[in-house]
Design a protein around this nucleic acid. Structure first.
Lengths: 193, 193
DNA sequence: GCATAAATTGACAAACTTGACAATTAATAG
DNA sequence: CTATTAATTGTCAAGTTTGTCAATTTATGC
């Protein structure tokens, strides 16, 4: 028939470049020119494949949430049946497994932009809440007799430590930061006994 | 002699407006026009009083760090001699005392911008480190016999919880968030015994 | 090879942003 | 009142960003 479509491939490349631009310059600083340069494509192609700037940002947000959910599901799959929270902490604060650092940085940048975008706030709040809920569910399974209040507190704490470690890792030396954060998370976990 | 200068007053107004713009739109989104509108002044006045855009952002950063240090000193003054960490937690996670929420949001926005500004990274890292060091000093005073490693972990945890609570407060309902964060901080503190 | 459909490029206009400066207005001292 | 100094306003040019579209190139099936 005709030339095969690269829409899927190109769209992914563009969204990748857009994410990197957002992480580096913030949402407002991620201009179409920068995204084009970052992706190695001509600027009109962004329009051709994804749409205008608003569409582009929206697409990044959609893909981010979908990816986050998928990674979250995969993460939970890898956990054992017993002592799941402890295993989760081992993974979350392993610098080698810090592949999610990009996601956290993207999240932070989107947080800033959410200040003027109510819908975005809802989306990001949902992701954060899901994170805390998952952690709380693990704690429920591991410590069924502990009060809901203590569970929520510990879940909130572990998530806060994880977010903080990943976002500060670009500011201070990551090794001690991850080590201290991990120890704090484990100490917090101890209080569930 | 002549007409009295409003340089001090106007400069403060402009920096206030610039901070609000940064919190709302990010550093890249804080255009001179927005800052001018936000401050109620004509755009050329920004130039007249503070300088060009680069000067403006730099001035915001300088004032932020100075204010943060001053508030930090004042904060420490208000603490008792004994059980300082516990008292600090009571203050940090008191929603009424959440006046610093603006500072945390500003910090987050600057963090994003720091990704492409090495000097800014140093400044922000300094502030964060000072925060953790202060917390660690309190813990040292309150629990002189605990290992340095445990102290650092707890200090890191409390600061992470504080940052997280203040930055997520605009996403999810702040009351439970602050309550859970506070409880987590206190549980973490318990592990120092 | 040829028709077809998609990718890619080049170019343009409108809107926005920044930097700069001259002209005007306003407040104070003497 | 007047000289002086600063605040304030209006305006303009240069550069950037976005949206749009026509023209061209490229890859595939037949």
């Amino acid at each position: 028939m005709a030339r095969p479509s690269k829409k899927e491939l190109r769209s992914e490349e563009i969204l990748d470049a857009c994410e990197r631009s957002i992480v580096q310059f913030g949402v407002a600083g991620a201009t179409l020119q920068r995204v084009a340069d970052e992706s190695g494509l001509a600027r009109p192609l962004l329009h051709h494949y994804v749409g205008n700037r608003e569409d582009l940002i929206a697409a990044v947000v959609v893909r981010f949430t979908e990816r986050a959910m998928a990674e979250d599901a995969a993460f939970k799959q890898h956990l054992p049946d017993k002592h799941r929270t402890r295993a989760a902490i081992q993974l979350l604060f392993d610098p080698r497994y810090a592949s999610s650092s990009h996601d956290i940085q993207l999240f932070q940048a989107l947080m800033v932009a959410a200040e003027e975008q109510a819908e975005l706030k809802v989306v990001l709040a949902g992701w954060y809440q899901a994170f805390v809920d998952d952690m709380e569910a693990m704690l429920s399974a591991d410590f069924p007799r502990v009060t809901a209040s203590a569970r929520r507190a510990v879940a909130t704490g572990i998530v806060a430590l994880y977010f903080n470690a990943d976002s500060m890792a670009s500011l201070v030396s990551p090794q001690p930061l991850f080590k201290d954060s991990k120890q704090a998370a484990l100490q917090l976990l101890e209080t569930m006994q």
